[in-house]
Design a binder for these strands. Structure first.
Lengths: 174, 174
DNA sequence: GAGCCCATGTAATAAGTTACATGATTGT
DNA sequence: ACAATCATGTAACTTATTACATGGGCTC
């Protein structure tokens, strides 16, 4: 039920069509939550039926602009303050690391080192993202700033861990 | 297709029944990957049909002990060294943070602070886990150690971020 | 009028969760 | 005998992915 709240959140910020939302999922939200086009249109239908959003305007090409309703905004706020159950951890990378004993130490080391490199690329990407955002436009980006900072710290942590782990694999055995 | 590899990895370490594997998912793997009982038995059936694993013994109560086959081990090794596509980011917490402008600053601050507290509890949990493991029993836990270290660093990062973010919300506005 | 973007939808499949259903064996 | 644990499986439902399908409107 989280896609639902992601959509509500975007529509709470400003009304938009499915197509508009899709673009926002692919840009601003790309590092936080993702949705496919197919999923999005389905969810918009359900949300409208549940009267959490409504069609507020229609445009060319069958465009339907949705807005959040009062009920929807209440639902969003309730969800926002609910810490919810802690998420099921599921990291494909960590799973691989856990089983790395199945391959040679050299291969294991390479795997971890490559993971560190990909974290470095993520860090770079976030740096350039940060540079490209106009942080003065205030309100909408205040909390986006916190999310970006989280990403930067996460990427840094991954890099440091990979460096540490690579070294550790080197020294534990030949 | 990752549950498949998690199962192969566990069976590569040692043979076991569905029931045995379930317990391993609930303990050792709990912080890395999760599977429900239902999913597990289904996957075991598929893996057997694909001849990546085989029934190596039968016991009381219809117990079937599975072992990995050579084909299965090869498949596991191939997967282990494949970095794979970077995972779709999906963090419910970060999604909430992103939309925190919908509630009052005081509520937003509380939310972030509580998140920090839950990260602190995770850190404690991992510390006690670390203390409870016999790190001398060598082979099987060598890479498990790297995974645990990742968890500790992750928990620390979350706590630091939450502290920073809480402070920032405090100072940015009243 | 050609090509690009806007715009919405459906179908098939895969993956995951919860609940239901059943029963044998072991230890006390 | 009773309870706890071992042990496997199925059904219904939800969520997410990929692919298919269609067409309008805008700009050059």
């Amino acid at each position: 039920m989280t896609l639902r709240h992601a959509v509500l959140g975007l529509l709470a910020d400003s009304p938009g069509s499915g197509y508009d939302l899709l673009k926002r999922f692919q840009t601003a939200m790309a590092n936080v939550w993702s949705a496919t086009q197919s999923q999005l249109y389905g969810e918009l239908g359900k949300l409208e039926k549940a009267e959490l959003i409504k069609v507020s305007a229609e445009g060319p090409r069958g465009r339907k602009e949705y807005s959040i309703t009062d009920t929807g905004r209440t639902e969003l706020q309730t969800w926002l303050l609910d810490p919810g159950p802690s998420p099921v951890p599921r990291s494909e990378t960590l799973l691989r690391v856990y089983f790395l004993g199945e391959v040679s130490p050299a291969q294991a080391r390479d795997y971890v080192a490559r993971h560190g490199e990909s974290a470095a690329r993520l860090a770079e990407h976030l740096e350039s993202l940060e540079a490209s955002i106009d942080w003065d436009d205030a309100d909408s980006s205040r909390y986006g700033r916190l999310v970006l900072e989280w990403g930067k710290r996460y990427a840094a942590m991954e890099q440091e861990w990979a460096t540490w782990a690579t070294e550790r694999i080197r020294t534990t055995r030949g």
